[in-house]
Design a protein around this nucleic acid. Sequence first.
DNA 1: ATGAAAGCGCTAACAG
DNA 2: CTGTTAGCGCTTTCAT
Lengths: 349, 349
Amino acid sequence: MSNGRPPTSHDVASLAGVSQSTVSLVFRGAASGRVSERTQRAVVDAARQLGFRPNADARRLRTGGPPMVLIAIPDIVNPFFARVFTGARAAAREAGFQVVLSVQRDLDSVAADVTGQRIDAVLACSLQDGGRPLEDPVPAVVLDAEPPQGQSSVRFDIAPALTELVDHLHRLGHRSIAHLRSEVRTATFRERTEAVDAACARRGMNRMPVASALNIDAAREAATALLPAPAGSGGCPPFTAVVCDDDVLSVGVYKAAQDRGLSVPGDLSVSGIDNVDLATAVTPELTTVDLPGEELGATGMHRLIAHLERGGGSRGGTGGAATTECVRLPARLLIRGSTAPPADPASRG
Amino acid sequence: MSNGRPPTSHDVASLAGVSQSTVSLVFRGAASGRVSERTQRAVVDAARQLGFRPNADARRLRTGGPPMVLIAIPDIVNPFFARVFTGARAAAREAGFQVVLSVQRDLDSVAADVTGQRIDAVLACSLQDGGRPLEDPVPAVVLDAEPPQGQSSVRFDIAPALTELVDHLHRLGHRSIAHLRSEVRTATFRERTEAVDAACARRGMNRMPVASALNIDAAREAATALLPAPAGSGGCPPFTAVVCDDDVLSVGVYKAAQDRGLSVPGDLSVSGIDNVDLATAVTPELTTVDLPGEELGATGMHRLIAHLERGGGSRGGTGGAATTECVRLPARLLIRGSTAPPADPASRG
DNA sequence: ATGAAAGCGCTAACAG
DNA sequence: CTGTTAGCGCTTTCAT
């Protein structure tokens, strides 16, 4: 019976013995008081019989529909991005924007993800560096990353918190620390390294950098390699604290310390960045830098919308220089259980 | 200068001094060898000048575009759903489907989320109970939940693992356990409760059920209330193990035990369900039931696609009874550090 | 190498 | 109450 292609309102109309526009009226919900009960039922029945669904593309071609904004995050597992998404979506909703979420690490994949979709604006969070800007003149705001072109961005100001952390460690007596970095090559992580390096230099502290992939197991391995061999080898590590670029890495260090029979924070102070669930789940709770992800998302979305409302369609020669702004959101150091003076202040002579 | 509404290919055509169809040719990428270099440049320039972007809705109305499947998950923070999404998306991609993700707890919100979008099929994971089925005749498969109507579903078979867990505890000497349940009223959690109850009954074990919201803090509070007052009150808890409906809850119990000065697993055995990151981050690592989320997502998507390919458009009277299937995926018990015999087997006389 | 013209399936006036 | 009509912006023959 059924033809190959899906039934249209015409098909429904002829089956129900009415005109196509009547079908339209019914399916728009505009039928009350304008189409008789009997006719409505006939239409609905015919539609059900045919499995008819109004063609969304055709409808939107006519009516326009609400503007759609794409939120892109690189990872769905990391709770931090979840927070960003939550904040951004709330802001978008409030402004009457429809949201579509794309989970991809780089912009090209994002583009592929939404090919053929009507996207009016893009909010891209923590995308990989070096991605060229969107070829399309879509208004975009970048979150927590180097804006590729002349795009606006919202980022964290992490350096002060990291400086505060290093100072705090210094005050407690730490003189030599390890810095467990992320292998991910994004602007945020570069900035974190720079901030730690600068702070250490300023205090004349020794700093030992190591890189690891952003998961517990990799961090555990990297940290284990750093820590002295198991009991009896007589060694304390050549550092008394580990500053990590991410809470996930810190958990790896906790595990490694445990493997090596070292106590946290007795033998080793550990800190992270992000303040995700993991940070309070571990014992002792992790000293970390809280990054207000929701606020990041919300702020970015607000800027994007503002840009849109004032005609951000990158129209002609309307000098668009002033639109490239970079806002920085403050990050807050949360000192919790893990930071304490080194076991033996004389460990390095 | 700029009119209110966005520029169309006609606008570009007249600015470039060519016909509209030429503009179309260029923007489809079908211009090579058919439109002169000079003309192409003129078109591109005019388009850039106007900020022209081809209207995606119009294009899709003509060409159809790839089928789109909606994946709905209730929560983006929970890594379990992340796994489901990952598995489902991979399967969809492989089959040439475009994916749109909606993060909403109930079907109505999901519907609102994608109003006006062209959705050809729906894969809904762990949706709240009691939601009426979609009014639209969209092919759908339900994951990890009671299928609302006559819809297919893919779910876990958790009971055997839970039975195994209780048996394991029994064998170790546990006779009285607490069951920390989730307040969320979904089919999965009901099933978990039933399985624990049944297993306890079969072994003649005492069981103390408590409900909590699905986050660490709530679980911590609930568990604290259950555990004996701080040091000196002389009491051991009236149970020697806590079986939790979710890893997140287990972490709350770890914290509560710590608050009360109880050791895990020395004084208290704790187990969870899900096997998320948290489960291995805590010390000792958590005994839990691994739910293969990726497989759940992939299996569900495969079924959905299969249903689609064989004309699943819910056409007419084609007896659709046989399509309502329910697959069960096995869950696996992972016994890790946390399960051990109770501190004093005589604690309850 | 370019243009004219006919729709895709729907909505939204406007007539009856 | 219902039907007629004209597009929405694009793709896609078919002429030129």
